[in-house]
Design a protein around this nucleic acid. Sequence first.
DNA 1: GCTTCGCATGGAA
DNA 2: GTTCCATGCGAAG
Length: 798
Amino acid sequence: GVDCSKCARNTRSALAPPSPVWSSSMHPSQNVADRKDNPVKSWRPPAGQISSQWRQTNLWSLSSIQSDLQQRLAYEFDRPSGSEKLLPGRTFIHAQERKFDDMHDRPTTPAGMNQVMREREANGHSQPTSLDPVYSYTLYHRDGPHPNSLHDPSHHGENDSMSSRRVAIPDASTGVDAGFKLDSHHPSILKDDPPSLSVGLASNFASSNGPKDHIRIAPSQQQSQMASSSLQKQYYSHTVSGYNEFQAQLRNGRPRMDAKARSQLLPRYWPRITDQELQHLSGEYPTSNSVITPLFEKMLSASDAGRIGRLVLPKKCAEAYFPPISQPEGLPLKVQDASGKEWIFQFRFWPNNNSRMYVLEGVTPCIQSMQLQAGDTVTFSRIDPEGKLIMGFRKATNLSSEQEQTTKPANGAPASSEANGQVSAPDLSPNAAVSRQNKVNTESKSPSPVEQAIASKLAQKEGPGTGQSSPGPVKRKATSVGQKIKRLRMDTEESMELKITWEEAQELLRPPPKAPSIVVVDGHEFEEYEEPPILGRKTYFVTDQSGANHQWAQCEDCSKWRKLPVDALLPSKWTCFDNKWDPERSSCEPAQEISMEELAELIPIKPGPGGAKKPKTRIEPDTIDASDGLDTLANLAILGEGEALPSQPTTRHPRHRPGCSCIVCIQPPSGKGPKHKQTCTCNVCMTVRRRFRTLMLRREKRQTKDTDSPRKKEAGQSSEMISQSGSGPLVTTASATSSPQKAEANTDGPEDMAVDHKMTSSPVKNHIDLNIQPEREDEQSPKADAAGAMRLLRDNPT
DNA sequence: GCTTCGCATGGAA
DNA sequence: GTTCCATGCGAAG
């Protein structure tokens, strides 16, 4: 690459104020040296070019492949350009550029624009018309004949077909026009894509966080009046595509394809731009009547950022936005960064599997200049009408950005530029806007202890600096940061770790101290906590032989186990001194209440000191394995209500604190959980039975409201079913006479449970469908209800 | 032996 | 199954 910043600056100053003039000092015969003679690294633009760089429109202004150029020009000049004059896009742009305020008066229909265009072009040309090949070449952009093809392979293939090419001939345009001709001649995503319909003004810009496809900088002649106004910039939204589509169709002589083309372009290459980046850009080109068109961006892979100096270009992007090349040698491509430096890269391709692989060679100096690493993102934009290709970058600098990449679907752009303030140019990351949003999210949401713990653990795993974007080329797979990020995939090992961490965290979660509110959703009551669960000390819930419920916790200091009430919520570092429930054992000195051996029978610990493991056995034969989680929670839920229930640690649904018997808590994971005996009186079975009764009561009530006799009969049947399903005393009579509302209200309530427990401590014979939804069951036919009830009670719950 | 170039390979989309 | 593309790798300089 060549640092032509001086040239660029000089040019800029010499041409100040830069006007979008299309005079090119490059003579048609001014040749670009052969690549061998003028390799990229040593290439310097001819003096004549330098002064014209600032205003000429060619992106690839100094082409070295003369044959390619001449071949193209020969065709282009021979080709009638009349159709070009009917392009509405330019017309539109004319009006737009002539006066910003005219935007409101511009024809808003394609036809109207078209008309304006005709008039304008018929009026002649106010701008220099000297035609030089490079200029023409650069103005010109291939026009793929295949609507469904993002690019025209013929223009990139060795058998380049010129059939579809058009010429942006200065005779048909002013300089301004030419610039937009360039734009309009871009047949591919970029060209059509630029959502050229001007709907966005400064206000839009100011309020928009979304991607910007087009940035319009106010005409210079209006700057004085607009300098202090936010209207200085116009920004084109991508949302209005009607005109754009029409425009594209006209100018391309074929159906517009940008939408499709864009869809063909992988989202990770979609350019996005943030407000701040727009500001930055507009500041970079304050006097130019320019439209900034984000083209694409790419996250640097290890190879891209490596010393080889080759930046692999996405094929579609290269073919859409860069000049067509027919020879593998390609051509030099001039790119300017936001600071004004100009770089010359060799844009070329390699044959690859009957396709091509496009690369930019010689990017190392630029990459180094920008201090980019793998994982950072480079962006490519174009400023029209200058037609300059601008290269920006975005550093992936922080963890949040990385996380954002992993959460942002199919788009691997890294950090927000605002985050690090390293925006260098039109930072067009697809994620920029999302970055900001993510940033806001992360700021507004204080991480929970679990999140912090996980983050901390991950950070430890990754080690310092790995949260950053640049992992460095440690090993090949690991260096593919960009790929990993952009593919939004988490490393398998990492994923496992995260899972483990989360599982570990689950055991430590406790509901927040603040009492939850009850929310009824679809007939189910849920406890809703305003605060996230807290990290607590792991305890074991136990029901001793006397039926009393309590939990055991281990002192952080002395490792002695202390018996605590079931409702005790312990901090993560709990010690005997925190044992306010048992003054006799509120220090580490008193001995343990029971021996370790005895304790080991209660909770899953080793008889020796320390070593609490997950419960594998239970002291009560009919209890449920605590490892089964959800039903454990169901049991646990009832514990707080005085029911005699087995001991289990609370391992899941941390938001459902003891007492919660919601459908979530009582429902074991699908396919999990032990088979319950018909005589099982565990809480799950009890709750299911109770719910079933509630269901039947509701139905009975409704039926009673409608018609008496059939309903009573059915209710009787239902009751019979229940009575048949259980071997013990039945609750049906009492339930049937109780208030349905009360029954509903007390579905999960202690009273209900108490009654249930008394009256239905009998085995069930039928299968209990824990997925049953009483409210929906209500909607079923009585027959179905009966069947559902039978199904519900057919077997024991699982 | 090192660097560069150009193509091949294979995983991922 | 096809295409893309990150990167490996041998040949050449």
